[in-house]
Amino acid sequence: MAKVEIHHLGDTVIQLQAHGVVHARPQVVVHLRVTEFDDLSASPAVMSLRFYLGQLSLLRAVPGIVSLVASNLDAKIRQLCERRLLLLAFQPAVELASGSSLELVIDIGTFLAPGCSAQDSELIDEWMFFRPLQEEELIFVQEYYYAEEESGFGGVPASKSFIQSLRRSPYGRGEGVQEEECVICLEDFDAGAEVSMTPCSHSFHSRCITQWLEKSHLCPICRYHMPTSSSYPQGQPMM
């Protein structure tokens, strides 16, 4: 049975869910859906994170995973969510049998029009509770593997030389930039904002993609493989 909590923070509604799921290998799957409501027309975007546990138990894995996921949230939302999500995730983690998996869903709905009323909040609650995640809403999927030697989760970072080689240019002046927002921070590109394009032709805020590549060599959008310190000079797409 799913554990569900709903919290209100100004014009933002936050819904947290935790429940056991069946997977071929023990893992924790986290879906972070951020939805902007403009006169109650919804514009959602979903980030999915998949943590493969190896021999690590759910109880030992949950605190580190929740902390890592919370680091992707706005400071005020993180302050509210991190402890609540940890407590919410612990109960099914205790109840699930060894080798089971856990799914966490963080739904963040923000009403853009000024003056979100109680009725508006209720409609956002209903939208998030009854509308399942849609495949087309996914922005990117990131995978993490538990590394015993590091006692934590992590991806393989891109090489420092590759990160430094990324060309930086003001938004609107570079060639071939198709995106209108950075999918890492979920903010629109302002005129003149410094952006960088990866070899797979996706653009991000330079500071965002630098921080991302220092943790993972996969493109946040298409999972293209960037060069690592042990790879060949050219990245290659994941099949």
Rank of each mutant, 00 (worst) to 15 (best):
S159H: 06
S117E: 12
I65H: 02
Q211K: 15
D38T: 13
L53C: 01
F204Y: 15
L218E: 08
K76N: 11
R60I: 08
E175P: 03
T35V: 14
L133Q: 05
V62H: 02
C208S: 12
Q91F: 02
T35S: 15
A93M: 05
L58I: 00
R168S: 11
C222Y: 03
C185S: 03
L59M: 12
R60F: 00
C185A: 02
L112K: 15
E187K: 13
A89V: 10
S57K: 12
F140D: 06
L80N: 03
F189Q: 07
H23L: 10
D11E: 11
G20Q: 07
Q27F: 07
D107L: 10
S229W: 05
V62I: 04
A61L: 09
L32Y: 10
A42W: 09
P220M: 01
E150G: 12
C116L: 13
D120N: 15
R33H: 10
M128Q: 13
V69Q: 08
S159I: 08
F130E: 08
T198K: 13
R50Y: 07
L73S: 09
L88F: 02
T210Y: 01
K215M: 09
A2H: 05
I209F: 01
E148L: 06
R83I: 08
F189Y: 07
E181I: 06
L88C: 05
E82G: 08
F189I: 09
A89D: 06
E214F: 03
